[in-house]
Nucleic acid binder design. Structure first.
Lengths: 141, 141
DNA sequence: TTGGATGCAAATACTTTGCACACGG
DNA sequence: CCGTGTGCAAAGTATTTGCATCCAA
């Protein structure tokens, strides 16, 4: 199963014109092994244990490259800076993944979702928010 | 309408033992005026136009304080660093707002939500993700 | 009066960049 | 061989912190 993902990855890289380097493989394999959602620094710390000669910049650059080519995902597109909101009403967000603009959506239907029973009962959910990712009109060109 | 929010804010501060300072009012008022979701730096740049003597640290500290007391909201709890994910399957996230741990949820029902028609049709949505905010077992104490 | 708030500057955390060199295809 | 990738160090951006002083209640 792991092996098939690796093979797929190598093929995907080739298809997208990305060189299959030693470093790239090491980073990707580490990311696959992690079930949480590590930061670039986390992964750097992992990889460096095995390959002490790797550069931090290589890890950062690779993660961004792989993300841009849709080979891995980013949990949030809004990590660059904290964003604050004075609005008290419950609402959801439309996020332009290119320019990072955020638009509000109010929708009674979306506010009343039934929580899925897949959620671990020991986790206390007190709210939820839906983030729609896409492109605003300006960024569609 | 604006005035009533200000009055409410003053009352809330008193209730929570927060001093009502000149700086705090200026920051909060600016945030209320903005319909987008500004960063601390954005707000600092706004406030400083009117009150050139205010300190950047005061703006940052106030936003965090107000957030901790639930007087304003933060669009994301995961802004500290980019988080990557090797998993290809579509899924949603359970986020512990205290320790920032992220747990995955897979749910067919949640994957097939009907998009609300409140969404501006010029915005191209290509995906959505639900983030459930709460506290993990460890952080509930 | 007193605990919380402010201001400043320094420190820290995360990330990007420029450039010379190395390497995969 | 060519274009992409790597490594290093420096720079950039976002944020926090320590501490002396100040001020709202």
């Amino acid at each position: 199963m792991m092996q098939s993902k690796i093979n797929q990855f190598v093929q995907d890289c080739k298809d997208k014109g990305l060189n299959v380097t030693f470093q790239r493989m090491a980073i990707y394999k580490r990311l696959l092994n992690r079930l949480d959602h590590p930061t670039a620094e986390d992964l750097y710390q992992e990889v460096i244990k095995e390959y002490p000669m790797i550069s931090r910049a290589t890890v950062y650059k690779n993660l961004e490259t792989l993300f841009e080519h849709n080979l891995i995902a980013k949990v949030t597109h809004l990590h660059d800076a904290a964003r604050y909101d004075g609005k008290q009403e419950h609402h959801h967000h439309l996020v332009c993944v290119r320019c990072k603009a955020i638009f509000d959506i109010q929708s009674e239907r979306l506010d009343n979702l039934q929580l899925p029973n897949e959620i671990d009962p020991t986790f206390k959910v007190y709210d939820y928010r839906i983030q729609f990712d896409g492109l605003c009109q300006k960024c569609q060109s």
